[in-house]
Write a protein that binds this DNA or RNA. Sequence first.
DNA 1: GTCTATATCCTGATAGAC
DNA 2: GTCTATCAGGATATAGAC
Lengths: 199, 199
Amino acid sequence: MHKEAWTFFPHAGSRHVQTLRVALKLFVKNGFFNTSIQELCSEAEVSIGFFYNHFSDKEGIARELYRHLLARMNVLLDDIEERHMGNRDRCEAVLRMLFGLAEAEPEAMGFVVNARHREFLPEEQAICSASAFVRMRGFVFAGITEGEIREMEPMVAASLMYGSAIRMICLRLDGLVDTPIEPFFDSLWEGVWRSLKPV
Amino acid sequence: MHKEAWTFFPHAGSRHVQTLRVALKLFVKNGFFNTSIQELCSEAEVSIGFFYNHFSDKEGIARELYRHLLARMNVLLDDIEERHMGNRDRCEAVLRMLFGLAEAEPEAMGFVVNARHREFLPEEQAICSASAFVRMRGFVFAGITEGEIREMEPMVAASLMYGSAIRMICLRLDGLVDTPIEPFFDSLWEGVWRSLKPV
DNA sequence: GTCTATATCCTGATAGAC
DNA sequence: GTCTATCAGGATATAGAC
C-alpha cells in the first residue's frame, strides 16, 4: 500500500458511491439536518426512488457513510500494524496517516472528527469508542506496558499522543491554517514524542 | 475570583436564564435540530409566547447561549491575565480552567467544544476564530516570541499546548473517562510542557 | 408582557405506473 | 429496479385575546 492509497474511497464510479460522496459533501458542508433528500438527490443526479431503493432512509445513508469510513480506517490501521512492529512507530504512522487523510480527503476527515454522529445516528456508540479509535489508543497502552512510553495514566498518554494532531487537523479543516499541514508533521511529532518518551 | 467561580452561569434565577439553561441541556443532549421549541418550553415551564417575546426565534436562543458562553470565557481569561504575568503560567492556568469547567459545567463545555455551531448559526465565525480562542493561542505565540517556549511553528505550538487537554475533555464528556479528570491535570501538564519548554 | 390556538410551510417517506 | 407525483406529520412562527 502506498501513500496515495490513503483515501477513504479507493473505488469510485457507481451511482451508489456517487450518492455517498455527495451525501458526505453536503453533510459536512451544511450538516445532516440542513440537507434535504431532495437536494441530495438532485445534486447526486439520482431520483428519490433510486435513493430509497439503495438506502433505507436518510439515516441509512449516513450510517453507511459512517461505517464505511470507520471500516476504511481499520484497513489503514491493519496496514500500519503490518509495516511497523514497535508501538512508537505505529503511533507515529497513525499520526502521519491522519495528516495525509486530512489533506487528501478533508470532507471525509471532517465527517469523522467533527460531525456529531449521535445526533443523527442515535444507536451508534460515541465515535471515540469505535474500533479504529480503540485500536489507536491500544498502541499507546501497549507502548506504556512495554516500556517504550513513559509511565503515566493511559488516558493521559493517549490524549498527549493524539490530541495535538487532531487539534491541528481541526484548525486546518476550519480554515485557520491555510496551507497543507503535512510539512508541519515532523515538528509536531517531535513535540508529541518529547512529551511521551521515557526520561 | 476563586476556583468555585469557574462557572458559565454565575447568576441564576430568572425565567430567562432558566430557559437558557434548559436549552443548553437539550441542545447538548439531543442536538439543536432534535430539540423542538415545544419540548424546550415545556421542559423550561414557559409558554411559547414567553419564548418568542424573549428570544427572536430558535436560532436566537442558541445565539444568546453561544455568545454568553464565549463572553464568560473571556471574563475568565481576563482573570487569568491579571493573576499571571508569564505566558507559560497563563497557558497552564487556561488548561486548569478548562479542566475545572469540564467538571463543573459539562453541558456548557460540551456546547463550546463539541457543538457544530455553524450548522445552526450560519452567520457566526468558526468557534476557534472566536476572541477567547484567539487570546488563548496568543499566550502561546507570545511565549515563543519571548523565549519561554521553544522555537517552532506557532500553530504547531498552539496545537501541542491545547490539543491534549481538549482531547482529554472530549474523552471525559463522551464517557470514556469515568472519573473526574482534575486529578490527571498535573500529569497532563507535565507532558504538555515537556513538548514545549526550551531545550 | 403573557398566553393559547392556529396557520403555513417543508420534509421524509410512500404509492403505484413503467 | 427506477421514476414521478403525492401524502401525512410535525415543525416554526404568528395572530389576537387578556
